[in-house]
Nucleic acid binder design. Structure first.
Lengths: 220, 220
DNA sequence: TTCAAAATTCTTGTATACATCTGGCATACG
DNA sequence: CGTATGCCAGATGTATACAAGAATTTTGAA
């Protein structure tokens, strides 16, 4: 399920490259993925290309129908909403579990990464903010102490990345997110698990809403 | 991700067969899956067999390491616990959403399937009870109205099926489950979403506990 | 000119052959 | 006798060839 950092096989390398391109939007939803063409591009035969496509299909990034070929997934708005809701619920679960289980080490990691987010949001370095935001959420995940949950959230985020990609770069959204983080961190660190879960659900819900509004306005 | 009912490709057919055998336990965890051997068995070449194995690896039923081959997944006790906890949390989410969203149609389906579970538990037909139990949970899932959530729960249950397989056949467990269903159904139908979520979490937690106790006693 | 049907072409599914790596075993050396 | 090294068998990764189905184009007639 997890694609290794340094793939030992051609198929894995191809999958990793295509995944990155889909996530960043270089490969647009609906784009057809011709096996032979990809083979030429990567100087490989169709065999490893096919395996790569199956790997991506498994994570939901591409859709493959027998005899019809595979293309970059283009979920409906309704499906995207379901995915956002699901990831929000799972993040909320992670927040609640983190609240109940976090050790001192986790507590420090959460507090520190939250502070780093604040500083990054104040500055203008968008890329830095994104990294710190990821770090904050990762700290919560780690504290939840459930590998399966963390893996699922990661997989879902990959699928949603093409749609949250452009929203993350909007500074005003980052300002709002920082305030939401503020509440979330407070509830987490004070040990109020239900409130932390609610705050997280709200936080992801806001992101989803903005992403969908923007998506509609861009007629995607 | 979803394996079609009537696969049009050899790979899909092989995957479906192997999946069933893993779920029922005919293929034990840790069992090595030799590509050529499987090819002989299904009168197919290694190519579709490899694709089938990749499909199963994606759903977590088999584990595949480059150059080392693939074998039926044998998660650690800790990993199984994480999976049970995760599915419990997701079922709880489904229960809460179902509570908030169910239409009259869903309400009837939940009440009816619950009643069917009661009757089946009173009788001795274990297979019937299992089907009715699935129906009850499916009714809740449907009411939650989130396809992505339903799909995830289904995938997780597949991965856990080898471990809950033997517990489901124990009549005393079914008696207890029926009582848990009673509480769950009451909360669902009365519209108490948080209580329904708690009841569901508790319900799955009980199952997990029993499954793990039994697994340990059987030295799996 | 337009619609329909057939043929061609292109893409995917499968089979087979070759390359490369892993693991075991035997042999030789310390 | 224990350990290390090198060879060999077997399995996986990749490439190529062939088969079958889908889409497009072309051709024919109305």
């Amino acid at each position: 399920m997890e694609i290794p950092a340094r793939p030992l096989t051609l198929a894995g390398e191809i999958a990793a490259t295509l995944e990155k391109e889909i996530i960043t939007g270089d490969l647009a939803p609906g784009q057809r993925l011709d096996e032979q063409m990809l083979g030429n591009r990567f100087n490989a035969s169709r065999t490893p290309v096919r395996e790569a496509l199956r790997l991506l299909a498994a994570s939901g990034l591409v859709t493959s129908e027998p005899r019809l070929g595979t293309l970059v997934s283009r979920p409906t708005v309704s499906e995207i909403m379901d995915l956002f809701e699901l990831v929000g619920e799972m993040e909320a679960v992670a927040a609640r579990l983190a609240c109940e289980r976090m050790t001192e080490h986790h507590r420090i990691a959460i507090a520190d990464s939250h502070e780093a987010c604040r500083l990054a949001a104040a500055g203008a370095d968008v890329d830095l903010y994104i990294r710190m935001n990821d770090l904050f959420h990762a700290a919560i995940h780690a504290a939840s102490d459930n590998r399966a949950l963390i893996a699922q959230i990661g997989a879902l985020n990959k699928r949603l990345m093409p749609y949250r990609h452009f929203i993350t770069f909007r500074p005003e959204r980052n300002q709002a997110a920082t305030q939401e983080h503020e509440l979330l961190a407070a509830k987490l660190l004070s040990g109020d698990a239900p409130a932390a879960a609610r705050a997280m659900r709200e936080h992801v819900g806001m992101l989803a809403e903005d992403a969908l509004v923007l998506a509609r306005s861009l007629k995607l």
